[in-house]
Write a protein that binds this DNA or RNA. Structure first.
Lengths: 214, 214
DNA sequence: ACCTGAACACCGTTCAAGT
DNA sequence: ACCTGAACACCGTTCAAGT
C-alpha cells in the first residue's frame, strides 16, 4: 500500500509521490486510493510512521543500555537513525514539513525519555534536552540550508557561478571553503552534513547536557 | 512587488501565496507577473531575501562587537533573528524548504564568520560551529516537530485526543508534560519553542564551542 | 466491500497576441 | 516596455454510480 509510496520516493524523490502517480504504479484508478486512505495527508503520515518504524528496527535490542549509560545509548540511537535517513534522503524534508505529529513518534520519544530519566535527568532537564537535540534523534540536523533534505534534487545553486566575483566581498567565506574543501561533497543529506559534522554537533550537545546538571 | 507576497504570507500563511492570488491582490492579470519574475521559485527566493534583510536591520550597528566578544555578539544576533521569525512565523518553514540558497544568505554568514574568526576561531572550528548552530543564526531551531514552522495553521493534532488512553503506555511522556505544562503554549514558533528553550539550546552550543578550542 | 468515471476547483506555466 | 487571453498539463478531492 504505502510501501509503493516509499519506493517512488526513494527512486524519484518525495515530490513524485502523488495520488495519481501512485495509483498508476499500483495498476489502479487514482480514486480507488480514497477508499483505503482519507487523503494525501494520511498517506504522508503513514510514510513517516514507516520511517520511524525503520529507525526502531535499526537501533536493535539495546539490552545493555543500563550498562552503557544514557550518553552512549542516545548517541548510538541518533547515529542509527542517521543511517536510516541516509537511505531515505527525502525523509528529513518530509518530517520537517509535516503539520501533524504521527502517534508513532510519541512512542519513539517515550523511549528516549525513558533513557534520559533512567540516566538521572529531571523531567525539566529532559524536556530541555529534547528541544536542544532537536531532530538529531531522528537522524538529521537542521542544516544552514539543506537542498537535499528539503526538495528532492540537488541542483547546482545559481550562486555558485558568481562565487568568484563575490570572493573579494566575502573573504572569510572563500577562505573557509578553500581551507575545508570537503572530500565528501556528494553527501546525500545536504551540504557538508557529513557524519563527522553530525557527530561533532551531537557530542557537543550530549556533553553540554551532561554538564548541565545530571 | 514582493512586499505584497510578505503581506499575504503574514496574513494568511505561506500557502496562500500563489501567483494567481498575488496578481489579484495587485489588481492585475495572473500572467503579468511572469514579465517581472521568472517564476514562483524566484518569488520565494525574493521573499527569503527580504527576511534576511529584515534580520540585518534588526541586529543594529554592532560597533561594540569587538568590545563584547564573539559569544555575546553571536548571542545577540541569534536572538534578534528570532524576533524577526516571531513576526513571520511562516519564514522558518519557507527557509527550510527552499532548494536554492539565496545570495543574501552568503553575505549574512560571511558576517557571522567574521565574528567567529575575529574571536579566534580557526576556519575548521568556525565551519563546524556553523553546522552546530544550524539555523539558530536565522532565529529558529529544528523542533522535534514544528507544525507552525512547517505548514501554516497550527491545528490541534489528532493524537491529542488519544493521549489519555496512551497515558499508561507512555508514562514518562505524560509525566513530563504534567510536570512542565507550559504557560506559553500559544508560542508562534511551534510546540514549546519558547524563548527560554531557544536561549538554553543556544547557550549550550555557544558554551560548548567556547570550550571546544578557542 | 471494493473500484470506477466524470467532474470540480484549484495550481504553475507557455505562448501568441494585444497596446 | 508592459500587460492580456486562452490554453495546457498537472494537482487533490467529491460524489454518484457501478459490480
Amino acid at each position: 500500500v504505502l510501501a509503493a509510496a516509499m519506493k517512488v520516493a526513494d527512486a524519484e524523490g518525495i515530490k513524485a509521490v502523488t495520488m495519481r502517480r501512485l495509483a498508476a504504479d499500483l495498476g489502479v484508478e487514482p480514486m480507488s486510493l480514497y477508499y483505503h486512505l482519507p487523503g494525501k495527508d494520511a498517506l504522508l503520515d503513514g510514510v513517516v510512521d514507516s520511517i520511524v518504524a525503520e529507525i526502531g528496527l535499526a537501533i536493535g535490542r539495546g539490552d545493555d543500555e543500563a550498562r552503557e549509560g544514557w550518553q552512549p545509548a542516545l548517541r548510538r540511537r541518533c547515529l542509527s537513525a542517521r543511517d536510516v535517513m541516509e537511505r531515505h534522503p527525502w525523509a528529513p524534508g518530509l518530517i520537517g514539513s509535516r503539520t501533524t505529529i504521527p502517534v508513532s513518534l510519541f512512542a519513539y520519544y517515550e523511549a528516549i525519555l525513558a533513557t534520559l530519566v533512567g540516566g538521572g535527568f529531571s523531567y525539566h532537564l529532559a524536556h530541555r534536552s529534547l528541544h536542544a537535540l532537536g531532530s538529531m534523534p531522528l537522524g538529521f540536523a537542521q542544516e544552514l540550508f539543506s537542498p537535499a533534505a528539503a526538495g528532492g534534487s540537488v541542483e547546482a545553486d545559481a550562486a555558485e557561478a558568481d562565487l568568484a566575483e563575490l570572493a573579494e566581498t566575502m573573504p572569510h567565506l572563500t577562505a573557509m571553503v578553500a581551507a575545508e574543501l570537503h572530500d565528501n561533497a556528494e553527501d546525500p543529506l545536504g551540504w557538508c552534513d557529513s557524519r563527522a559534522e553530525f557527530e561533532f554537533t551531537l557530542d557537543l550537545l550530549l556533553d553540554g547536557l551532561a554538564r548541565a546538571g545530571v
